[in-house]
Amino acid sequence: MDIYVCVRRVPDTSEVEIEIDRSGRALEEDDFSWDINEWDAYAVEAAVQLKERLGARVTALTVGDEDDEEVLRRALAMGCDQARLLSDDVFAGADSWVTARILAAAMAEPRPDLVLCGAVSADQGRGQVGGFLAGLLDLPLVALATDLQVEEGSARVRHEVSGGVEHLVDLRLPAVVTVQTGLNEPRYVSIRGIRKVAGVEIPVLGAADLGLDPAELQPRVVTEELFPPPQGGGAEILTGSGEEQVERLVELLHEHGGLV
């Protein structure tokens, strides 16, 4: 069985004072630390567990530059068999659509039996790549999986639909599944684990290697401007002693119909 997992390196913006850089289209990255997208870690864990149970070859893919190799190493340390860094100057500015095209091209040989992606990425939060990928590969898609059982040639997937309802779907492989956090418990990767795979060669594939025509890689979505949301009215910071604050809070809740 051939399993592909698509991963992405995202910044951790917690605890950072967010600033927009001079271009006005990106964030000041100085204080960011980077790691594998949380959802993707669950996808990798799912793939590795399938490999351990059923036997499979797991390939991790990412679109990016040499800095992004780090997340492929992490995927290898978790147990993926091989990794491909899809990198080319013409990939710069790739949107979800272009990213999906590049990934799909990298899955031409061997053809996948199962493609696993994180449901969304923590930075953009669009959740589109998995869907585009299924379309491009002409494969069935189950999004937002919360449980995944695979047997020879078929899968049973539990997934969220709106309103907290869950569906149970049986489908024949090959297929694309995007996973939710909580699907499993991703294993910890120790520093030693990362070092052990430091020597594993990760092939870098560009547009030419993937048979992609740069002209077809024009992003359809372009960031024009990045700005903090405008401050709305209505926020109020209560001051005074604890008791005074509570009194005022109760008053406000009454006024606005929060307490009946």
Partner: peptide, 11 residues
């Protein structure tokens, strides 16, 4: 830890 079995809250 080497086998990746670190409790989730510590990750």
């Amino acid at each position: 830890v080497d086998e990746g079995r670190l409790p989730a809250t510590l990750q």
